[in-house]
């Protein structure tokens, strides 16, 4: 499936923020906004909901901690108890460093993986590369409604907010 989006290019952070708000206020759906660096206030301007990635991270961290603690408990208390320096088999303080490491490892790897999957950044997924958005251009991708007049109106909104260039691109939706 593919859709036609309208791309407006801007040459400054302030203009792209204003234009993003204006596009949404005019009732168009934003496909996405592409910027060379993280622009403060863009989440608000795009009306993005708070990221759910934090919950993935939290859940993965808890899973890591639980996995590490249960593995250590099982190996040193249930499966093969060893007397080490007269310490109790369930030596909780000694389990903490490993649990900490596994918590961080699970949380980090899962979060990165979840982000890549959610953003569809994996091999085989063809993405449109917009020229110059990794350099000095800011781009807004608008999903205009079908009518040709509507396209013209969307272009007008972008132009009024200082778009230096516009293009129509087919993207995978």
């Amino acid at each position: 499936m593919s859709a036609s989006v309208l791309i407006g290019y801007f040459d400054s952070e302030e203009k792209v923020l204003d234009a993003t708000r204006a596009v949404r206020e005019a009732g168009y759906a934003l496909h996405d906004v592409y910027t060379p660096y993280a622009v403060h206030g863009m989440d608000d301007a795009m009306g993005l909901r708070p990221s759910r990635l934090t919950w993935v991270c939290f859940g993965a961290g808890l899973t890591g901690a639980a996995a590490a603690l249960s593995l250590q408990y099982y190996t040193s208390v249930v499966s093969w108890p060893l007397n080490v320096g007269g310490k109790p088999f369930n030596s909780f303080p000694a389990f903490i460093p490993v649990s900490f490491e596994l918590t961080v490892l699970f949380a980090a790897l899962t979060t990165v993986a979840a982000f890549l999957i959610r953003a569809k950044l994996f091999p085989g997924n063809k993405r449109v590369a917009l020229p110059r958005v990794t350099d000095d251009r800011f781009a807004i991708a608008v999903e205009p409604r079908e009518a040709p007049a509507d396209m013209a109106a969307a272009e007008d909104v972008l132009r009024r907010h200082g778009a230096v260039e516009m293009a129509r691109v087919e993207v995978a939706s």
Partner: peptide
Amino acid sequence: WFSQFLLIWYAN
């Protein structure tokens, strides 16, 4: 805190 505690607890 834990770095101080663990080493002392472990070495005993």
